[in-house]
Amino acid sequence: MDTELDIQRFFREVENICALEQAQQEERNRKGENYNLFSILNIERYELKHSALIANLLDPKGSHGCGDAFLRAFFEIALKERAYPFESSTPPNSYTEYYTGPIAGDTGGRIDILVESKSSHYGLIIENKIYAGDQDKQLTRYDNYGKETFGADGYLLVYLTLYGYDASKESTATKSTEEVGYLRLSYAEDILRWLEQCVRLADNKPLVRESLNQYIQTIKQLTYQDMNQENIQKIIDLAVDYPEVVATLSSKRDAIAQGIREKYIFAELKEYADQKGWLFDSTEIANPKGDNKIRLRKEGWEGSIIISADSEDKKSNYGWWINLWIGIDSKVTGAKKLACLEKQSPEYPMGWEYLTTPNWYSAENFPAMKESVAEEIINKLDEIIEELGIK
């Protein structure tokens, strides 16, 4: 086998398929078939918007006018034929950001989506994670709320992510050795299949049906499934014919991720810092056993802007960029939170927030790392610098 020749053939064929896909996309754009209000309004970036839409679809009293049909389909399709628990004559209520009390150890917090029925005494608890990382004991707190409110067998805790990831150990930490039980769901498969069923159920409601179709397209874009299915199958067939090439590429995933980070993220941020006259400190990047961290500093300012990653598992997380966030490490006494940053903590009183693409290791995020990550960070840096008033 001539591996080098096979690699050349493989990429030549992939390039041809991608050229065909681009031509087809341009034709769809010309016909207006890719028009999508969700994308135009940039809704796909905000977890709260996804939670609000899903919660409305799960609400039998929702404005979709389909009663409990979507909720029943959720248990049948997304939850893989679990028995429907809301058979009472009184329909359940659906909430977003449901407040369970102040965070105190193993209790409290806001549940992203809660569907509950007092008469059926059952609760569906959904933690929705698209970009943000887990909070400490987050699923543990919601699990405790479920047990206390509905009883040990009266609730289901769901962890929803783009690709069905596991929750972090910090999120499920308990005082005992017993693990928090939860069901993993993905937008890429479970939510898509459910939404497709919702489209069929809303066949006689054109506004609802077409809105769902646009949301489906948004989910496909988020999970990189918006390529024409025939073209996807061509690439799969090609990969089957060249398994050695695929194995070679897969084995070099870490190196590819590092190359993408360096070329399309780190270099762009270094150039930005140079243009602004800021110091760009990336010593941690070159240190495989150090924290993943980029630090931008302005001479004379007692603080720095940090781009870093949650240290979920120090033994295995060295060198990885997972659960990424941007924040301000300030030594200014009495510093107040900036309006342009969503969150605040004692360690970062001036604010911090998760990045839209929070995993610079996963192959699913390689396109975003090339096309949009540096731009997003630079836009946020501009907001921070402007609000700080630093020239």
Rank of each mutant, 00 (worst) to 15 (best):
I7Y: 04
F10S: 02
A19H: 00
E21P: 06
E26I: 09
E27K: 14
H50L: 02
A52Y: 08
L53R: 02
L58P: 01
G65M: 11
D68T: 07
F74K: 13
F74W: 12
I77V: 15
A83C: 09
P85Q: 13
P85T: 06
F86D: 14
E87R: 13
S89H: 11
P91M: 10
P102C: 06
I111K: 13
V115W: 13
H121L: 08
L124H: 07
E127I: 00
I130E: 02
G133T: 02
D134Q: 01
Q138V: 14
L139G: 03
L139K: 00
L139A: 06
R141Q: 08
R141K: 08
K147C: 00
F150S: 02
G151E: 07
A152S: 12
L160P: 07
L162H: 06
L162C: 04
A167N: 03
T177R: 04
T177K: 14
V180T: 07
E189R: 05
D190I: 02
E196N: 05
C198K: 14
R200S: 12
P206L: 11
L207G: 10
V208H: 10
E210T: 15
L212W: 08
Q217L: 11
I219P: 03
D226Y: 10
N228T: 10
E244Q: 11
E244C: 03
K252C: 13
D254H: 13
A255S: 11
I256N: 15
Y264A: 06
E271W: 10
A273D: 09
D281L: 09
S282M: 10
T283F: 10
K289A: 02
D291A: 12
N292A: 08
L296T: 07
E302P: 00
I306E: 09
I307G: 01
N317Y: 06
G327P: 11
A335Y: 06
K343H: 08
Q344C: 01
G351I: 02
A368R: 15
V373M: 15
I378F: 00
L388K: 08
G389E: 12
G389L: 04
